[in-house]
């Protein structure tokens, strides 16, 4: 478990504009349970990287305490910090592989640094890691010979080398195309499942959160403005920033949509299904029972991690609209009356 207790960070800019202070992270409390995939979403400059890098102290906190499995990492000395960092893997947007070393030597590096001497032990571990990320045949290649997705897989293998319990991912898929992003996310989910690894993942895409995360925190201007289970945050966003991210993910323009709805007669409501209810034949039944006519104005059916969800915006005309609303309320769906 990772805990933040009133952790804050202010950068002091050196050089020409010396003395200028940038408050990158406001005093923050945060709990990340072990074994979770925890997403951090926010626009550029929101303070996501700062928060992430405080966990392995690539940045020193300006104040507050960070506990990992009960251990105060803000109190570690240089030696303790190095030991601790071997238990925390990290992957990066631009991979940060050593161009001068082969794939195998890149993955072996953390082991060498940790003082593993036996060549046989290193070779065996590297082979196992490369097999896990699906790069068994690429051990002797250099990073320049790999695609972006393959480079990130090497990054993941390298981050796992010393058997960490936490994996930090700073925009790990932001430099990849959508298809490669999907396969890297799938690999992260698999690692999380099989190694019971806690993953903290930064992104600016809600879609990444929706696909792999258990919980999410939304950051804005150095603060966590909303957090919770992904399904709750994604389906019922509260903060304006969160709303924008969700709409972005659905590729919806809110103003355009409002204008469109103004043309439509009747009541407008939004139904949100999650889990089993997503595939239940609710609409037809309500229409038959109450005599209302409905038309679908907007809709989406997809998955949050493994669980299906649906979100439909309907207009209702004719029949007994109040009875229809009552039936929806009684059913296993979330109802919002928009107009």
């Amino acid at each position: 478990m990772i805990e933040f207790h009133q952790v804050h960070k202010t950068y002091r800019v050196a050089g020409k504009r010396a003395g200028r202070e940038i408050p990158a992270l406001q005093p923050t409390d945060l709990r990340i349970e072990s074994g979770q995939i925890f997403g951090l979403i926010g626009h550029s400059g929101a303070g996501k990287s700062t928060l992430l890098r405080l966990i392995n102290r690539l940045e020193e906190p300006s104040g507050g305490r960070i506990l990992v499995d009960g251990e105060d990492v803000t109190a570690l000395d240089a030696n303790g910090l190095r030991q601790f960092r071997q238990r925390v893997g990290m992957i990066f947007q631009h991979f940060n592989l050593l161009a001068s070393k082969t794939v195998a030597d890149n993955v072996a590096l953390p082991l060498k640094l940790a003082g593993v001497r036996s060549r046989a032990e290193i070779d065996a571990r590297v082979a196992e890691l490369l097999a896990r990320v699906g790069l068994g045949d690429h051990a002797k290649k250099y990073p320049a010979q790999l695609s972006g997705g393959q480079k990130q897989r090497v990054g993941i293998a390298r981050a796992l080398a010393t058997g960490p319990t936490i994996l930090l991912c700073d925009e790990a898929t932001s430099a990849l195309d959508p298809q490669t992003t999907a396969s890297v996310l799938q690999l992260l989910a698999q690692i999380n499942r099989e190694l019971r690894l806690t993953i903290v993942l930064i992104t600016h895409e809600m879609d990444v959160i929706r696909r792999v995360c258990d919980r999410v925190a939304v950051m804005d201007a150095g603060e966590i403005v909303e957090q919770g289970a992904v399904a709750d945050v994604f389906l019922h966003p509260q903060h304006p920033t969160t709303r924008r991210f969700v709409l972005e993910a659905e590729q919806v323009d809110e103003d355009e949509r409002r204008d469109d709805f103004a043309q439509v007669p009747g009541r407008i409501l939004r139904l949100t299904f999650h889990g089993e209810s997503t595939y239940a034949p609710l609409l037809g039944k309500v229409a038959r029972d109450t005599g209302v006519d409905y038309s679908i104005l907007a809709g989406r059916i997809d998955r949050i991690r493994e669980t299906p969800y649906g979100q439909l915006t309907l207009s209702l005309v004719g029949g007994d609209i109040d009875a229809a609303l009552a039936q929806f309320r009684a059913a296993d769906v979330h109802l919002e009356v928009l107009r």
Binding site: L58, P110, L113
Partner: peptide, 29 residues
Amino acid sequence: VDRGIIEATQAMGATTRQIILDALLPEAR
């Protein structure tokens, strides 16, 4: 040498000596 290389090596728990000998110098070769 990309700063990211130093950062990645630091994140592995390298000592400064290791960062120089095992990452910086090979990358700058």
